[in-house]
Write a protein that binds this DNA or RNA. Structure first.
Lengths: 228, 228, 228, 228
DNA sequence: GATGAATGAGTCTTCATTCAT
DNA sequence: TATGAATGAAGACTCATTCAT
């Protein structure tokens, strides 16, 4: 059209194929930053470098855009994530730290963390979206951790614990850190730079200690040979 | 309906004293449920049983109402919370579980959890509010836990750990559970009923195990007689 | 509380009788300064030192207050003014300057000038008020001047002129000055201090010259010794 | 109705260029008629044949619209007016009447008169606008007249007078007539139709008489050879 | 396809007016 | 009388959505 003959490199990379993705990328940032209601479509369009009307060529409404953003950002990550389920044969006390680190790279350091925050914020307004996220992301994630714990127990590497509850305990620190990164870090860099790595380390350390320890009971277990 | 006692409540009561609190209570629920932007002042007024204009007798704008809600809901809880800092002389492995339970009662089971979710959601739009919350709630909470851990280490009840990081690890499971309660629990009761208590138990158990265990190092502990 | 024992001297001169006048005085200032629509009844009440509701004890509506202000401010001035109609027997060239000065004192230096501005501004919204003002103030004023001119002509002191038109010419400089005092003088004192008096002087001078001079005809007087 | 040509005008035209002018024209009439506060933007939009929202495509607020109307209406007139400053070489007693008539055509018979009334009415609420008007319109106008008088004096055509004061005297009748036309004429046609022309004539006559006459002093000049 | 001017329903906010005290 | 809390209609302003170009 206006642009150029575009033999190969269009002036600004305007290929129909990529449009929806560009629009969603622009929308994602704003939705995460401001929430659904406070995000104006003008801004989304402007950030994507198109006019407001163009949005409607690809998405039938703001809500549709929102859902597309959620879906399209999550689905690929789920696929990426599936490939990691086949975590195999390491000893559990090596598998778990590896899993945490992997997770941080795929989740905490990713837009997905922003999405999570966004969805939690809009859960009241978009219950289906919240449910979708819960079913497709949170539950599988929990299940993965649960599976690893279960395996450790079965192999005798871990002591018997409430698997479901423990899976929440192991998820929480990273999830929360990721979410907070989108809420508070921008304000004060106080704890941000330091922690990402430190938390991973401390978390792995604490998790293994908790899972390996014999039976801490409330009364300090004497000094059994805690063994594998 | 709206009021409670009534019976012959005048068409509109004349309670300058109680009104602000009533209005903020109504607003809190809606803000938590829908977020700032999606909450209409008409609804807030209706829920409080007053007309729209009445809101402006007490709050100069929607934003003002929002900030008042945050401030007025948080401040009392902070005071309540201050009184619990004087946790005294129990052995650390009893103090910690007690602290967790106390916390859940004051935080997770409270509107404060809703506020937390709300503030995280609106952090991008109200940075000052986010900062206020971080400074007044999150940091003191973290500091409290850190102090307990520190004390345990000093007394030789806990092993040496990265106190700051550990404090995050100990906060996270309860915080996340509380937040999720406002995002997903309404949808599917799947995990809700069960967990509140189970998580507390498992968390206390795991935390103590992690803090007491000698030094699990990433490399599996060499089978020493774990010392005290 | 609010009241006082008020044995005889009420704290702040609060006698029922004076209330309406106090309210109107407060209203007048604000109406003149801001116009009808932009004046808030809260402010009127506040300035008069009463509550908003009290206004409605004396005036049935904002419009009613407005009309009362206009009427009650104008009517006394008209009476005052009537007494000056009996201008007696001075020679016309003394009567005229005296009339101008009198007028300035009664009109330009008075709230009446503010009223005039106000009414002109609101003429579109309150045609009856405008008409009232025109009939009760402008026309009589014009008639008075016309009468004086007429008298001067009859006595042979003035040359024959278009009396009605001349009456406008003689009114205009003072009226305009008075009106502008309420519009521009507050901004820049540039011309204000100086002119009030100078205009009176120059006006009297010019008016007499115009009325006495033989007949300047549009065609330049035939080149007599136009003297310096 | 609203449009003019049309016939098959699209549901809503697409005229970015002409819109602002159309909107300002519509706004001008209403502002002049009703004042700033009493003018509703719906009406402005309706009169311009567009929807309310369209206004905001061109003006960021009601106040902005107001100021634009003032500015854009005045500026062209100023330019028109500048061209008349080069009034040249007529004898002063011809130049002055010509100036008055010119002025009436450009000012009294124009929207500018309405603007003047409007600005005076809103001076209290929009001091900057009032100042702008005073600086750009009133002062230059006064200066122009003053220059003509000065010239006449220099040439010996006029007697020495207080130039500044006289310039006000000469401005006033026309200005006031113009302003009143927007306040009272609509009501009663009593004096309106007649006067415009008569005032011009009488004004020219009186002005020349006043400027040419020798020195009327307050004491009636005896009987100089003032002859017909 | 892309644009962006135009729309109008929806919100916040104000303020004249009422009325229980 | 006087008060001032409460009201609600009205108006400024926003923004998702449409559609002629």
């Amino acid at each position: 059209m206006h642009p150029d003959s575009d033999s190969k490199a269009p002036r600004w990379g305007r290929r129909k194929e990529s449009r929806p993705a560009e629009l969603m990328a622009a929308a994602l940032d704003l939705f995460v930053e401001r929430g659904f209601a406070a995000t104006r479509l003008d801004e989304v369009a402007a950030r994507a470098g198109v006019s407001k009307g163009t949005l409607y060529l690809y998405f039938s409404s703001k809500e549709d855009l929102f859902k597309a953003v959620v879906r399209e950002t999550i689905v690929p990550m789920i696929h990426e994530y599936q490939r990691n389920v086949e975590q195999s044969d390491l000893p559990s006390d090596q598998l778990l730290p590896a899993l945490f680190r992997r997770w941080w790279e795929m989740f905490g350091a990713t837009k997905l963390a922003g999405i999570a925050k966004l969805i939690m914020a809009e859960a009241g307004n978009f219950p289906e979206v919240a449910e979708f996220f819960h079913t497709e992301v949170i539950e599988p994630n929990g299940a993965l951790i649960a599976a690893v714990i279960q395996r450790g127990i079965r192999r005798g590497e871990f002591r018997a614990v409430d698997v479901e509850a423990m899976s929440h305990l192991l998820m929480a620190p990273l999830v929360l850190k990721a979410i907070w990164a989108h809420s508070f870090d921008c304000l004060c860099e106080k704890t941000s730079g330091l922690d990402a790595e430190r938390i991973l380390t401390a978390h792995a350390d604490a998790a293994l200690a908790a899972l390996r320890a014999p039976a801490p009971a409330t009364a300090p277990a004497p000094s059994k040979g805690s063994r594998s």
